[in-house]
C-alpha cells in the first residue's frame, strides 16, 4: 500500500482532506503511482503530468523521506519506506509567488 499526500488544490478536485492510499502491483515508481492515482481519480489527469508529454509539470515536485525525487527517472523505484507504506510520497506544488 502506497500513501500519497496531495497538495490542497488537488485535494479540492477529488473532494478529500486525507492522504490517498493506493495498491500498486510490483515495484512502485513515480510513473506507476501516478498512473494508479489517475486511474482512481480521472479528474487528476493532466494536473500532475503534462497530458501530451507525460512529463512532470514544471511547478510540481515529488518528495519522500526528506529527499527531492523530482528529477529522478519516473521509472526509478521509490524508496523502500514509501513502497512499504511507512512514509508517504508527497506531491507538492512548488513554492512560487510573493
Amino acid at each position: 500500500m502506497i500513501r500519497v499526500v496531495l497538495p490542497a488544490q488537488l485535494r479540492t478536485i477529488i473532494h478529500t482532506e486525507q492522504e490517498v492510499e493506493l495498491d500498486i502491483v510490483g515495484q512502485p515508481t513515480q510513473r506507476s503511482v501516478i498512473d494508479a492515482l489517475e486511474a482512481r481519480y480521472p479528474a487528476l489527469q493532466g494536473t500532475i503530468r503534462d497530458p501530451a508529454t507525460q512529463k512532470r509539470r514544471p511547478f510540481v515536485r515529488f518528495f519522500a523521506c526528506e529527499n527531492d525525487l523530482s528529477h529522478e527517472s519516473p521509472d526509478q523505484p521509490l524508496p523502500d519506506a514509501v513502497a512499504g507504506g511507512t512514509e508517504p510520497l508527497f506531491i507538492v506544488g512548488a513554492m512560487a509567488g510573493g
Binding site: 497538495p7 479528474a43 493532466g46 494536473t47 500532475i48
Partner: peptide, 8 residues
C-alpha cells in the same frame, strides 16, 4: 486553471 496544475 493554475500555473501549477494546468487546466480543468
Amino acid at each position: 486553471s493554475t500555473g501549477w496544475f494546468g487546466q480543468l
